[in-house]
């Protein structure tokens, strides 16, 4: 059976590293990116099952990642994380067809559950 592919985009390197460390042990194929542009380039080459992205980033931000992903692969699930835990950004993100929304600090176990559910509901 093919392993699920998960992409993590966050300008804080540790977020990607820690998520990758945990998810790889669950058997996912994980790739991490520090900003939007190379991530979108990589997405054009290959489909990912789940994209976890930071909302606020320099250049290509989380909302743009979401739009591009939905254009390329309508089935791919997008999970948002953000340091701004305010309601407005959450509503904006959910309206844009995101699967889930995590304010920082991120609970990795909850993130994993969310990813599992995303794959199950496909």
């Amino acid at each position: 059976m093919d392993r699920y592919r998960v992409m993590i985009i966050d300008d804080e390197k540790i977020v990607g590293d820690m998520a990758k460390m945990s998810l790889e042990r669950e058997g996912y194929l994980v790739e991490t990116f520090l900003n939007g542009e190379p991530a979108l380039a990589r997405l054009k080459e290959e489909r990912f099952d789940v994209v976890v992205t930071d909302l606020k980033m320099k250049g290509v931000d989380g909302m743009e990642v979401l739009r591009t992903v939905k254009e390329l692969y309508p089935d791919t699930k997008v999970i948002m994380i953000t340091a701004f835990a305010n309601l407005d950004t959450a509503i904006e993100a959910l309206r844009g067809d995101v699967h889930d929304f995590f304010p920082k600090p991120v609970k990795i176990r909850e993130l994993k559950v969310s990813i599992e559910r995303a794959l199950g509901s496909r």
Binding site: S22, F84, A85, K104, P105, I108, R109
Partner: peptide, 27 residues
Amino acid sequence: AGVAHELTNPLNNISMMAQNFTEYYDS
């Protein structure tokens, strides 16, 4: 808002590292 944003990122990093440290301590 600035303080919150500036502090949330390193706090999140510490939190995630601590979670993995505890979770995978043995391995």
